[in-house]
């Protein structure tokens, strides 16, 4: 099964195995059923299940590809693979578009962007006036909404991300590049036995 899951992602089979170890841990923190519930996703990210975060909720929904309220292992690996440094930029851009299309209308609308900026300011210490927020949103639309219809479609977004690659910065997790090296504890639990490790 690991082989199957690894295919079509930049992960090797042993990396998928390492991810399974991580998945098992996260998916059993609240409900011991080997599925990641929203609460467990929050706990893993924030150590706090109560903290509300617009983006984490959207991320959870996107990881939950089947939309059945839980993240299964295959969904976890496939979604994380988009954040791999080796994943194609177009894939990252498409994922980010879905994230930002809060109401899943197929467009990033002005009020959605404003909502995201406000959510961001809420969680940060930044104190920015609502006039300034309007200005930032206006200016962003000036740049990205090239067709000028008041919403950003997938095509406009892809072009915008291509011209401004830094907007996809959050779509790359350097950790994923060599997951078994960065998290050597995984290796112990993988096929390499403890005795082999001790011998090294």
């Amino acid at each position: 099964d690991f082989v199957n899951i690894a295919s079509g992602t930049p992960f090797t089979v042993s990396e998928v195995e390492a991810l399974h170890d991580l998945f098992r841990k996260i998916s059993n923190t609240v409900v011991k059923d080997n599925l990641i519930h929203k609460e467990e996703f929050h706990v893993a990210l924030f150590r706090n299940k109560k903290k509300q975060n617009l983006f984490v909720d959207r991320l959870f929904d996107l990881f939950d590809q089947k939309g059945n309220g839980v993240i299964e292992f295959g969904e976890f690996v496939r979604s994380l693979s988009v954040f791999h440094p080796g994943a194609p930029e177009e894939q990252k851009a498409a994922f980010a578009f879905k994230l930002y299309d809060l109401r899943q209308t197929g467009f990033i609308e002005r009020n959605e962007l404003k909502e995201m900026v406000c959510a961001l300011l809420d969680e940060s210490e930044l104190d920015i006036t609502s006039d300034a927020v309007e200005m930032i949103v206006d200016r962003t639309f000036d740049q990205a909404d090239t067709k000028g219809d008041g919403r950003i479609d997938q095509e406009e977004w892809t072009a915008f991300a291509k011209d401004n690659p830094y907007v996809l910065r959050n779509m790359t997790l350097p950790y994923l590049k060599d997951i078994t090296m960065v998290f050597p504890s995984f290796v112990v639990h993988s096929e390499i036995s403890e005795a082999d490790m001790a011998a090294k």
Binding site: I26, V117, I136
Partner: peptide, 25 residues
């Protein structure tokens, strides 16, 4: 000057910091 909303979101939101997933000790 070149600041835009998506830049702010991508560089600042803790909601995107998935590294927490890897520190779930």
């Amino acid at each position: 000057r070149s600041c835009n909303a998506f830049q702010l979101i991508s560089s600042m939101s803790s909601g995107f910091d998935l590294s927490g997933l890897f520190e779930s000790e």
